[in-house]
């Protein structure tokens, strides 16, 4: 499965909540305001750190990171672009955590 999250973890609990429904081998892609979840050193960093530790591949969308001037990513968060997003969708069924 591909899980997309588009909310800042400071706005609501979507990022936290979706972790409970992620299976081994799933991909978590942070887009739009969701990329704030990938920032290192925030009080919400533990959510993504925990996901990576438990084996989830976590990606953040490069255009959304650049637009928000985010450069300090949590170790292990990978960066992808829309082409990469499409490849994930091709590989996995998708759930958008709106």
């Amino acid at each position: 499965m591909l899980h997309t999250v588009n909310k800042s973890p400071f706005q609501n609990s979507t990022l936290e909540s979706c972790q409970r429904f992620i299976n081994k081998g799933d991909v978590l892609l942070l887009i739009e305001d969701g990329v704030y979840g990938a920032v290192a050193g925030s009080v919400k960093s533990a959510i993504v750190e925990g996901a990576i530790k438990s084996g989830t591949e976590v990606y953040a969308l490069s255009s959304d990171l650049k637009a928000r001037a985010i450069t300090n990513l949590i170790d292990g968060v990978q960066i992808t672009d829309y082409a990469g997003f499409v490849d994930f969708v091709e590989k996995h069924k998708t759930h958008s955590w709106l």
Binding site: M1, R20, F21, N23, K93, H95, S96
Partner: peptide
């Protein structure tokens, strides 16, 4: 439980939010 839902999600053709 969440684990049951996660397992069901993985079986779907498509999931709509």
């Amino acid at each position: 439980d969440a684990s049951e839902i996660a397992a069901m999600m993985a079986e779907q053709h498509n999931i709509m939010s």
